[in-house]
């Protein structure tokens, strides 16, 4: 009873401290979310524009044709030029001469940013490098380019997931090579349920890479990309997680 005042004041101080800590943590998270939004290459409205502009052009069936064409090409990494040649060849075969990706500059923006990033990495690894001004020649993973193309794919979310899964199956086919189990059914199946049972599984690494590609092509919401750091004193701090971390967290939640 002699220390009642002290106990009371200590309790108040602790409550205030925890409130302050929580506010600082929330502010840090909100600031990071704003950063992610501000630095995004595309905003959600642009993505919507890209998708609607290609409403009649890039549907799931056309996408399947594109994948078939890339299966013929048989390369896991291609330049953007080669990639677009193949895509346009399929589009023109289906929709006639002159068909092209509408609002393609939005897709270009995402791909060029990736080429810059890869170019910088190459420059950094080859110190006295012939600085990559030949960005056009940089080869990017086919899975990344297809993830970028999926920005323009006009379809339901379920179909889009199918489409991306087929991309991973295709790439896995290249890896396994020898041509055998590559022949994953590339959809246009009237009974998707049957198809799903037939689809082979893909490696976890591929899934992580695909999530990373989706992140790099602005297809994940900012909130989902935020992960907690180990620093929680004096308040919790946050950072942007990569594909591996986001996949791990999702799998933990599923478990």
């Amino acid at each position: 009873l002699d220390n009642l005042g002290k106990i009371f004041l200590t309790t108040i101080a602790l409550v205030l401290l925890s409130l302050l800590r929580s506010t600082k943590g929330n502010n840090a998270r909100a600031a990071l979310r704003d950063d992610i939004e501000a630095s995004a290459l595309l905003d959600p409205l642009e993505i919507e524009d890209l998708r609607f502009a290609n409403e009649n052009l890039l549907t799931k069936s056309v996408w399947d044709e594109i994948l078939k064409e890339f299966r013929e090409v048989g390369r896991e990494r291609v330049t953007y030029g080669t990639f677009m040649n193949v895509v346009l060849r399929v589009l023109r075969r289906i929709h006639g001469e002159g068909a092209t990706i509408q609002c393609g500059h939005l897709m270009d923006r995402v791909v060029i940013a990736e080429m810059d990033r890869v170019g910088r990495e190459i420059d950094a690894s080859e110190k006295d490098g012939e600085s990559c001004d030949a960005t056009k020649e940089i080869e990017l993973p086919l899975s990344f380019l297809l993830a970028a193309l999926s920005l323009a794919l006009y379809s339901t979310v379920a179909d889009r997931i199918d489409a991306l899964y087929n991309v991973m199956v295709l790439i896995q086919g290249f890896n396994n090579d020898a041509g055998e189990s590559t022949t994953a059914p590339l959809s246009i199946d009237p009974e998707p349920e049957t198809l799903r049972k037939e689809l082979p599984s893909v490696s976890l690494v591929q899934v992580e890479q695909m999530i990373q590609h989706l992140q790099n092509t602005c297809q994940l919401v900012p909130d989902a990309q935020i992960v907690e750091t180990n620093a929680n004193v004096p308040y919790q701090t946050y950072r942007v997680g990569d594909g591996t971390e986001l996949t791990k967290r999702a799998r933990e939640a599923m478990a």
Partner: peptide, 23 residues
């Protein structure tokens, strides 16, 4: 390894929330 259903669940989980659509 991951099958299509798992991939679907991962993309639609709150941790990934692709295209803003999550459970």
């Amino acid at each position: 390894s991951v099958v299509l259903e798992d991939f679907y669940a991962i993309l639609k989980s709150r941790s990934v929330c692709a295209w803003g659509e999550c459970y």
